[in-house]
Design a protein around this nucleic acid. Structure first.
Length: 478
RNA sequence: GCGAGUGUAGCUCAGCUGGUAGAGCACAACCUUGCCAAGGUUGGGGUCGCGCGUUCGAAUCGCGUCACUCGCUCCA
């Protein structure tokens, strides 16, 4: 599938009511999209599949925690410290660097010069580096040209760079709780839903009388100030996560990791109809691991723009629980009454982006049927926004009345749509493009003997069946 | 954030070196049509992303801005 396909999918999404650009009448807002009537149904169908697969398992329960939480949560999680990296650009070649990364690659005399400039001692350690970068940031105006005058070399060009002053990139959205800017408290919109699970995990465990291993599942919005937001709905600043955090005994972490890797990969093929050839695992290398992770796998999908992550399966160890215990001073240990043992469970995280799954499902379903000159969205029946289109063959002779009657009956079991506009072929094609799996057509014969033709979207085959066999046919052929 | 490109009707686009907008599809109404788009008639819809400037006059030129695409960069 080529990049051109993405353009076509974007256009189809807008035409058919799946996804609209947000705030379009005001010129748009970067990387912000709205889900239209068909889109919201598709998105909901995907999340319902996930919810069912997760929480119908007896030892996984649901949670809906708040988007806004106590700011200390993000101190404890490491998000405040780890995602506020001071950056600088080299104006000569437009390269951008994290200042700490850059300094690590400098000769000692350069670091010495910087230390002297900001009057600290050079201990030749990471602490010194951190101190330099935070000072450059905090007094950005004063140390405007510090990097350049200290002779900091651009590793790419090998020359001293023309460095801009240190700039902070805040990955978290900061806002104010309380009606007054002055008295209110600065808080963050959550950058991941996981922390809401961790801070509640003992309450959940107690109230549901759960024993390790158990899981907590949550679907909700998260917010990140991505530096680049691109590829349609693939990376947006506001997005919806579906996370399941699985709490295990520390000795069980690796087996649990393997279990969930398989479970999650299977989900895509068996529940969402994604072809295996378009899916793969990607293991994070040890030095690319997040600050909390011991091991991490992504599930990637072959998007029109290349392989992209749709889910992360991470071994987060006991890092988060221990950090929360440290900062809050509250016990975060699980008590195993049978073994009479107290410990911090390890957490295996499965974290997926609903919006990405949505895009993946659309990319997978999109087909150009050149033989019949039509576009078909081959969505699985369960995911299709509309299941059946009901059409009178002609807009006369009482056929519309009969069709509406049938529409009412079938609608009680399946989401249906009624269409009498245009030629019958045109109406079929319209629905093919929206992914509607079946079409029922009412003709004069229907008036005589209560039979209709039912047409299948993918094969375009038609069958004559009696009215009372519609549901049976649909459930057999979906 | 930097660089390049793009921005005209719901969608895809045309509009030459400036003279105040078009097509196809889509949509709506009516006719036609007895099962797989593109038949007929009629109609709705655009201050040409937005702002400022140059000009007698700008969709067309310049600057700024917003958005999208691509490349760097970043990515829990």
């Amino acid at each position: 599938m080529s990049k051109k396909h993405l353009d076509k999918i974007v256009s189809l999404c807008k035409r058919k009511g799946f996804v609209f650009p947000n705030s379009e009448i005001y010129g748009g807002l970067k990387a912000s999209y709205d889900y239209g009537p068909l889109g919201v149904d598709l998105k909901r169908a995907i999340s319902e599949k996930w919810w069912k697969v997760m929480t119908h398992n007896s030892n996984i329960v649901g949670l809906d925690s708040s988007i806004m939480v106590h700011p200390d949560v993000w101190e404890a999680s490491g998000h405040v410290a780890n995602f506020n990296d001071p950056m600088t650009d080299n104006k000569d070649n437009k390269k951008r660097y994290r200042i700490d990364d850059l300094l690590l690659q400098q000769k000692n005399k350069v670091i010495d010069a910087l230390c002297e400039m900001i009057s600290i001692e050079n201990n030749n350690d990471n602490n010194t580096i951190d101190k330099i970068s935070s000072t450059l940031l905090n007094d950005a105006n004063k140390y405007n040209d510090a990097l350049e005058s200290a002779g900091v070399v651009d590793p790419f060009s090998g020359n001293v760079g023309k460095w801009t002053q240190a700039t902070q990139f805040n990955l978290m959205f900061k806002t104010n709780a309380g009606p007054s800017e002055k008295t209110g408290k600065s808080i963050y919109l959550r950058p991941e839903t996981a922390q809401g699970i961790y801070i509640n995990y003992l309450l959940v465990q107690n109230s549901m009388r759960l024993k390790v291993p158990f899981g907590i599942a949550q679907i909700g919005k998260a917010f990140r100030n991505e530096i680049i937001a691109r590829n349609f709905i693939f990376r947006t600043r506001e997005f919806e996560q579906m996370e399941m955090q699985y709490f295990v005994h520390p000795s069980e972490d690796e087996s649990s990791m393997n279990f969930w890797k398989k479970q999650r990969m299977d989900f895509y093929s068996s529940e969402l109809g994604i072809s295996n050839k378009n899916l793969k695992f990607h293991q994070h290398s040890k030095d690319a691991l997040a600050h909390y992770a011991k091991d991490a796998f992504d599930i990637e999908y072959n998007f029109p723009f290349g392989w992209g992550e749709v889910e992360g399966i991470h071994n987060r160890t006991d890092f988060d629980l221990k950090e929360h215990e440290k900062l809050s001073g509250k016990n975060m240990m699980y008590f195993d009454a049978i073994k009479n043992e107290k410990y911090h469970p390890y957490i295996i995280e499965t974290s997926t982006g609903l919006n990405r799954l949505f895009l993946m499902v659309l990319c997978e379903a999109y087909h150009e049927d050149t033989e019949n000159n039509r576009i078909v969205l081959k969505l699985p029946f369960d995911l299709a926004p509309n299941k059946i289109v009901v059409c009178p063959l002609l807009k006369k002779d009482g056929l519309p009345d009969k069709a509406k009657e049938i529409f009412d009956i079938v609608s009680s079991d399946h989401k249906c749509i009624y269409d009498e506009q245009g030629s019958i072929g045109k109406r079929y094609y319209r629905q093919d493009e929206a992914g509607t799996p079946f079409g029922i057509t009412i003709d004069h014969e229907t008036l005589d003997n209560n039979t209709v033709t039912i047409r299948e979207r993918d094969s375009m085959e038609q069958h004559r069946i009696s009215l009372d066999k519609i549901l049976e046919f649909v459930s057999k052929n979906k």
